[in-house]
Every structure is written in C-alpha cells, then in structure tokens.
Nucleic acid binder design. Structure first.
Lengths: 246, 246
DNA sequence: GCATCAAACATGTTTAAACAAGTTAAAACA
DNA sequence: TGTTTTAACTTGTTTAAACATGTTTGATGC
C-alpha cells in the first residue's frame, strides 16, 4: 500500500513500462505532460522517475527526454539493490519456497567468528543453519547469526517459516539496509551433503555474506548464504558517475 | 571536478565519514546544522545525504537523525552500484593494472550470439578477448562485444590501454548505465590456459555479463567478464523498501 | 538551397516554504 | 514521585518558482 505520491507514481510508471504501454527504446511523455497526467509537482514526478533510473528501467537524457530501456530478464534472478527474503523472491517468480532448519543453537561469538561476522567477541547470538528449497529442490544453505538481544523469543518453528516476518510483523523491527559481499568459495562437506548430491562436478559455491541493520542502527544479523552455483543468478543495474576523468 | 553543489557536499561528507571525523554509530550533525555549515538549501543537503544512504555509509532515522554506519571493507572489492573500469578499480586500491589483448577481430552477430548478447542478428561488432592483470597476476578474462557503428576506429592498441578512455575522451561518448548479471560457470579451456595454470583445484569462474548503454540509449557493449574465483569479491549495499507486508 | 539564429521544449540544479510525522526532553500536573 | 502534556527538536513529503543547460526545429536571411 503505497502511502506517498511519488511512490504511487513510481509504481504506476513501472507497471506501464513492464506491460509495454511505453515501447522499448521509445521516449516517455515529457515531465510537463506527466505532471499534468498525475496532477503533481515536477519535483514529485522527478523523484519517481529517478527511482526508475536506478532500477535500470529508463534513461534520462538532458534536452531529449526519458527513454525506456527496460527488457525483461529471463532467469530466476535475485535483484540487487533491495532486500528480499527467499520466500518473496520465489513468490515474485511464481514458485513455491520452503525451508528446513538443519540446526538451531545459540552461543557467544568467539574471536575467529568476530572477525568475519563483525559482532564483538562475547556477543550472544542464535546460530541457525537453514536449507531453502525452491519447488522441492534445495538451492541455498544459509548460516544465520542473529543477535539474541535484538530478537527475543526466536524459535526453531519461527525459523522454519519466515524469520523476517517474525521480525517485522511481531517484533515490529524495521529492516533498513544490508551490506553484502559476494564471493566464490570451495564447497564444504555440509554443502555437498545437502546441496550437491546429484551434481558432483561443481567444487564451488556462490556465497553472499551480509550484515543487516535495523532502524536503530543495530547490526542484528550476519548471514552467509551459500548458493548452488548452477542456479545462482544475481541481477544488478549500475550507473556510471559523470565525473570520472583522469 | 564536481560541478554541482550537492555533489561537492556529498564528497565532503563521504570523506569526513571515511576519515572518522564522524565516529561509527554516532549521529551526524542535523540537517539544519549542516545547511548552515555548507550554506545551502535543505533540499540540496538532503540530496547529498541520500547518496550516502544508497552507498551504505549512513542510515537516516525519522525523528532521530542520521547515523554513521560506515565500516571499511578489507578486501579488494569491486563496488556494485557504479561502473568502474578495471584500471580505475585498481588505482583506487593502490595497485597497478595492465591489459593484454589476446584476440582482436570483428564479425556479424549470429543467432546464437544474439540470444545472450542482446544484439540483433547481423549486427557488426568488434570482438575482443582481453586479459587483465593486477600487479602482474592475471585475474580477469574479458570477452568484449563492441558495437562497431558506435565505436569507429577502435584498434588493438586502444584496447590494450583503456577502451573506455577512448570512448569517453576521444569519441566523447557518455556511458550511462550497465545491466549486469552475475553467475558462476564452469571453467573453459581458455580460462584454464590463461588464468588457472597454477591452481587446478577450482573448476568454476565468477562471471559478470553486462549490457552497457550510452547516452543515446544505444547498447554499445556486451561483455562477459570471467573472474578468477579466489580473487573475486563484489560489494553491494541493499536497501529494503518499506512496504513489503503480506 | 543552405547556413544561422532564435524560440520552444527537454531535463538538471537550487532555493524557499509549508506541512507531516516520529523522537526526545523538559515542563506541567496530579 | 510518577504520569501526562507540551514544546522543541529530528527527518520525510510536497509544492512552487527560478534559472541553467542541452536539443530540436522552424523562421530568417543570404
């Protein structure tokens, strides 16, 4: 339910682009035209358009106009630039997601763990290993480190469903941003056991390590997400800054 | 050379954050304070701050303030969200980059190539294979497909140096955005020959496929960038949209 | 016919002001 | 003392207007 005007316009334009109301490579109506269409100020309209730019949907050209450069992507892609849970991503692509908890435990962070998680030594956390299935096929093995003090009452059952749903809807935590690092790593025994039974000819995994912050500025989660390489696909749109000479 | 006011402020704040003028987890001065500091309007200041948010440098909290959540990252990471050439990325991290052209040829796109590049069948392109070295170590093998009609006079010598420098500074082309897809793929013979002579125990590569557009809305480049897995590292900051219930 | 110039139109930047909404802390009250 | 209310902060949204800058096009003049 979009509250703000610019968000409503953004979604409307986005939907119009996706459904080819505006043709690929064609110019959108000018700002002035759209301002009249939506009966809003130029600033508000421009705010909506600028989000389409960062999404890689359109390209603005000073003096010329705004060109539609949206082309649908084929694969089941995770989208960078926003935080989506596995369930959300699956639903968006019309698939069924399920989760199996392999391990649910808690401990205090030691020195070695502190280095890669970013949690201080001694921090109490829930450590969870979860296997994510897409249509009955195991795709992702997650190692979650949840800050215990920020997530009271987390149980195996909640982790089995959606931890984020619990955080957002029960605890009313607002998840703000997530710093992610993507790497390729050698498979581990546990990867092999759960993810690569049938395909022995891959010896790597796509790994996304993320530190997630809530609206209090607290890093409440560190997760290492290990993806089956043959199904891994990450989509991103990058914008080149203008001033880059020398 | 930043032209606009908001860009100047953005860079100044960014630099202050990086050099710990504002401490980690502390609040930045309020908007009103900063407006006085920089002698600008609130809108301009907010524009600068909003870029810091997408960079993952700060976090804004309504009613509270703006919190510094910047922490330096250890590895030589490529940064998603902007387009950087290999040379630029290397220079930013204090390393020396060099490039070797393995193959420089031209042909017309066939049906199979059309599918993955996005160029129409029959399009004339330059096809270049380039090996990128970081401090004498080969790290990346690039397969470049440049639209011939958009890049007149491209030569092997130019490709040996910086193709983008030629595009931007000689042809005055403005590179705008780049749609990228990241995957993990099996190594090919050519990968093995040039990149993995010493390390036989990896059978995968980190692959970034990108379609790049210029300011005329023309997709002038398709590139498949194959990264040596043990040195591949991609950094990203994701922002969770507020309206995500159901 | 053709180059030149100016007007019209496109997006980009900046300012100012008003109001909305969340947070904090001091003041007022019981 | 302890609760409530208010006031003074914070960031978030929206409007309006002015000017800058790049592009297109049609009128002008030769």
């Amino acid at each position: 339910m979009p509250k703000s005007i610019y968000e409503t316009i953004y979604k409307d334009l986005k939907q119009k682009i996706e459904t080819n109301v505006f043709a690929y490579q064609e110019l959108l109506p000018s700002e002035n035209t759209l301002v009249q269409t939506y009966n809003c100020s130029r600033n508000t309209l421009r705010r909506a358009v600028s989000r389409l730019v960062t999404d890689g949907y359109v390209q603005t050209m000073q003096g010329k106009g705004v060109r539609n450069i949206y082309q649908p992507i084929a694969q089941t892609a995770f989208t960078i630039g926003e935080i989506e849970t596995f369930r959300e991503s699956a639903a968006r692509n019309g698939h069924h997601a399920s989760t199996k908890v392999l391990l649910f435990t808690e401990f205090a962070i030691n020195e070695k763990q502190s280095l890669y998680t970013g949690f201080p030594v001694g921090t109490d956390i829930y450590y969870i290993q979860r296997l994510h299935y897409l249509d009955a096929m195991p795709l992702i093995l997650n190692h979650n480190y949840f800050l215990k003090e920020a997530i009271p009452g987390l149980t195996k059952e909640i982790a089995e469903n959606s931890a984020y749903q619990y955080l957002e809807q029960t605890l009313h935590m607002t998840i703000v941003n997530s710093k992610r690092v993507m790497t390729v790593e050698k498979i581990t025994q546990i990867d092999e056991k759960y993810l690569l039974k049938d395909i022995q000819d891959y010896n790597c995994m796509a790994v996304i390590s993320s530190q997630t912050y809530n609206s209090d500025g607290v890093m409440f989660e560190y997760t290492q997400s290990r993806h089956r390489p043959d199904y891994f696909c990450f989509y991103d749109n990058a914008v080149r800054k203008s001033n880059r000479q020398t």
